[in-house]
């Protein structure tokens, strides 16, 4: 048995596949590509696979990690990637396969891109206000967690912000904490909704660009 990690992209129509559904999708991808996934023991065996820091439905990603284990004796990584891609639904692309050197729990930061769409407002005019808003020393946001509602200051957990006017509105890029605490990119917009409703875009979509460890090194 070999423990492996797959780096893949999730984009286009596939961004609407939920985390749970994606697990089933990938399980079937391996099976129809002809590989033997390792299964759990017990009465109801299921494949031992996990996706690191799953995203919310609707977000795309250039950088997803799937941990899995194969029982196949010989594995040619280049062929494995080609076989998986031939069996993938539209929008999911296998990029790399390798033996992981560390646990996925070591992921600490995500670099995300948000496109804030403003329909009847001038994006140029929003730019400075957004920059100023996210530069505040404190950004307290009320959010629902498993333990009820709580206020979280997201300012220390959102870094390296940059803003740019693009065709559809404003492109926001940021480094956000994904572990202790977990900052969902949607919180960036929720912060506006709670504090500066006038800056809330008509629509916002997010893309994950890269993942990092606590030392800001790219995580693989």
């Amino acid at each position: 048995m070999r423990k492996l990690r797959l780096l893949f992209e999730k984009k286009e129509r596939a961004v609407y596949i939920s985390h749970l559904d994606l697990m089933h999708v990938l399980q079937r991808v391996f099976l129809r590509a002809g590989y033997k996934l390792k299964y759990s023991e017990g009465f109801n065996p299921h494949p031992v696979i996990s996706i690191a820091v799953p995203m919310s439905v609707g977000a795309s990603s250039e950088c997803e990690l799937l941990d899995f284990a194969l029982l196949d004796e010989e594995i040619d990584y280049t062929k494995l990637i080609a076989d998986l891609n031939a069996a993938m639904p539209e929008g999911i692309v296998a990029l790399e396969v390798y033996e992981p050197q560390r646990k996925a729990s070591g992921i600490k930061w995500l670099r995300v891109e948000g496109i804030y769409e403003y329909d009847n407002r001038d994006a140029e005019a929003m730019l400075d206000a957004l920059r100023e808003f996210y530069a505040a020393r404190e950004i307290p946001v009320t959010r629902k967690t498993k333990r009820g509602e709580g206020v979280l200051d997201i300012a220390p957990h959102v870094k390296e912000l940059s803003f740019k006017v693009v065709e559809d509105g404003v492109r926001v890029e940021a480094m956000i904490s994904v572990n202790d605490p977990t900052i969902n990119p949607d919180l960036l917009v929720n912060a506006l909704r709670q504090i500066r409703p006038d800056l809330v875009p008509d629509f916002a979509k997010f893309k994950r660009l890269e993942i990092y460890d606590e030392n800001m090194e790219i995580f693989r």
């Binding site: 939920s18 999708v25 991808v29 639904p89 539209e90 929008g91």
Partner: peptide
Amino acid sequence: ARYTGGEY
């Protein structure tokens, strides 16, 4: 996901 198509 039921409204997007794009399945294998």
